[in-house]
Amino acid sequence: MTNNNPYNLIPLKPTGRNETDTANTYSPEDMVQIYEQQFLTEVPEDKITEFLPFLKDFYDIDDYTLDVSAVIFEAIADSCIIYNHKVKVGRYQILEGLVKEEIEEDENYKEDEGSEDKQEQAYTLECKRTFFINDIEMPYRFNLFIHGDSYSTLTKRNSLLEKIYWFVSDGFEEHVLGNPEDTESLASINEQLVSLGIREMDLTTIHELVDYVEDSIIDDDMVETLNKILDDAE
């Protein structure tokens, strides 16, 4: 920290100029770092009005670029910023082998005399996807149910991330009105987050986190692996 850099900002190398030639442009990874410093750098209250102009000047960023930056950061899938919590998707694991499930045949299907194909087989598969919140590893185990071209997931209730999912899925009112000894509360979730070195989350952040997890547990690489497993089973 120096007089020229009193907020200890990280020098980054811009990739060039934007179309109007009014500000430097940065790689997505660099923009994330700039964004984090904008919101996470501890600034004394009497210096707040000075910080933002200094940040803009330090990185040679114009007002317009900084104003639209939130849209840019939201589009960075592998470095997602959710209300100051950096969430990343990690590896997946197939924990147990494919299990065939007995599905009761649809009566309408049986009565369809023109149909000669067999009803599609259903399978379940135990899986785990690892997530990171501020670089803290968070496991997320789930049972994958596959039936034809569709699938659904049923999440465990053991890890903190799984508990967060059920806190949102079960509904906030149920946690308020139910037995607090049997359910997780926002306070107990935040207590566990803080114990891991992760900042507390409000309800909006919790819901954003669960939406992100649900959108990310199955990716193209995992689908390719699952298709191979299904092909071998058939």
Rank of each mutant, 00 (worst) to 15 (best):
Y109R: 15
L193P: 04
Y212L: 13
F145A: 01
Y7L: 06
N227Q: 13
P139F: 04
S169P: 00
I189Y: 02
H147T: 06
Y109N: 01
I198G: 08
Y165R: 04
I34Y: 03
N3Y: 06
N143T: 14
Q119I: 05
D62M: 04
I34G: 09
L95V: 11
E74C: 00
M1K: 12
V87R: 06
T65N: 09
L196P: 05
T49V: 10
A70M: 04
G90Y: 04
R199S: 15
V99T: 13
L125C: 03
W166K: 08
I94P: 02
T22V: 11
T153P: 00
F142Q: 00
N5T: 04
F145V: 07
H147Q: 13
Q192I: 00
V176R: 11
Y109V: 09
C80Q: 13
N4T: 14
Q37Y: 10
E200H: 02
L144N: 09
T124V: 06
P44A: 14
K156Q: 13
S69P: 00
I164F: 03
S159C: 05
V213G: 07
S195H: 09
K13M: 09
L196N: 09
T20C: 09
E107W: 11
Q119S: 12
A77C: 00
Y109A: 10
Y109L: 15
N3M: 12
F132N: 02
F54D: 06
G97L: 00
Y151L: 11
K228R: 12
P11F: 11
C127L: 11
S195G: 04
D170H: 08
E126D: 14
E126V: 00
F131Q: 01
G97M: 03
M1E: 08
T49L: 15
E104L: 13
P14A: 12
S69R: 10
S185F: 03
K100N: 13
P6S: 08
I34L: 06
S115Y: 10
D46Q: 11
T22I: 10
S185M: 05
E200W: 02
N190C: 07
I146E: 01
E200Y: 02
K88P: 00
I146F: 00
L9A: 10
E50L: 15
F39W: 14
D67R: 15
P139E: 03
P180L: 03
T124A: 02
T130H: 10
F58W: 04
V176L: 15
L98G: 04
I189S: 03
N227C: 05
V43S: 09
Y92R: 02
E29V: 08
I164T: 11
R141H: 14
N24Q: 06
L55D: 05
V32I: 15
T15M: 15
K110C: 05
N158V: 12
D231L: 14
D60V: 10
T15G: 10
S216N: 14
Q38M: 13
A187G: 06
I146L: 15
D112M: 12
T183W: 07
G90W: 05
D21C: 08
T183R: 14
L98M: 12
G178E: 09
F167Y: 15
I10H: 11
I61G: 05
M222R: 01
A23W: 01
P139A: 10
D62W: 08
F131P: 02
I82T: 04
F54S: 08
F132K: 12
N179Q: 06
S185I: 04
K110H: 03
P139I: 06
